[in-house]
């Protein structure tokens, strides 16, 4: 070994939170997993803008791995009735969104997910397969966002589809607000409209899967 190498012996353990008192009321915390270039960061940002339109205070921020395409990226979203002052990483999310099926087996996507939380993944093999692979009792849903995105956008960029899926499954933010945010986000009107179509399709699909449609 070369001089100056650092060997990690033990990971530091985060102390337990003192449970005598509650943290500020954060309504929803979401963690997005994607790969660099897939738009996990934009997904959280879109929802921050859309949530603000609904009258909430919102905060989104990324945690990059390395700055290059293909490496795992995490981004976070907080939604609250009050101004959000805490900027530490989301450790116990209410919802987890996974943009890329290949991440399921390489990243601990379920880490810290609340007992009654939900995971939504872009996963072509379906929800049953996803549950088995993750080996969990928590609510998990699969959607073939790559296929939807390829059909509508002509490119396998799944972030808007996954935003639609999250909003469809949870109703945390109005789909109309998301559509408005998309129209503002994309300068090219044609691309914006395609993304609105995609977000709506994923939204409708997930509402049906979750039984909200009836």
């Amino acid at each position: 070994m070369t001089r100056g190498t650092i060997t990690l012996l033990n990971q530091y353990i985060l102390p337990e939170a003192n449970t005598d008192w509650r943290w500020m009321d954060i309504l929803v915390e979401v963690r997005f997993h994607g790969r660099g270039g897939q738009g996990a960061v934009t997904a959280a940002d879109l929802l921050a803008v859309a949530g603000f339109k609904d009258g909430y205070h919102t905060l989104s921020f990324p945690m990059f791995g390395a700055e290059k395409r293909g490496t795992p990226v995490v981004s976070f979203l907080r939604v609250s009735d009050d101004p959000i002052v805490i900027r530490d990483e989301v450790k116990t999310p209410d919802y987890v969104v996974v943009m890329d099926p290949s991440l399921i087996e390489v990243v601990d996507v379920l880490a810290g997910l609340k007992e009654k939380g939900m995971l939504i993944a872009n996963y072509p093999m379906g929800s049953e397969d996803l549950r088995r692979t993750l080996n969990t009792d928590k609510e998990v849903h699969a959607i073939n966002a790559t296929k939807m995105a390829t059909e509508i956008l002509g490119r396998p960029i799944t972030n808007t589809a996954m935003v639609g899926a999250l909003v469809g499954a949870t109703g945390i933010i109005k789909i109309e607000s998301v559509e408005e945010a998309i129209m503002e986000f994309f300068e090219n009107k044609e691309i914006a409209e395609k993304n609105v179509k995609l977000v709506r399709q994923a939204y409708d699909y997930m509402r049906e899967v979750c039984g909200w449609q009836k």
């Binding site: 070994m1 070369t2 001089r3 100056g4 190498t5 650092i6 060997t7 990690l8 012996l9 033990n10 990971q11 530091y12 003192n18």
Partner: peptide
């Protein structure tokens, strides 16, 4: 809490640090 309860001394400390070893061959 640690400071309030007198568990630590008033000197430079590192928190959130992993246990590690600097390897010098």
């Amino acid at each position: 809490d640690d400071v309030m309860e007198g568990k630590v001394k008033p000197e430079k400390r590192f928190e959130g640090l992993n246990e590690f070893e600097e390897v010098i061959p």
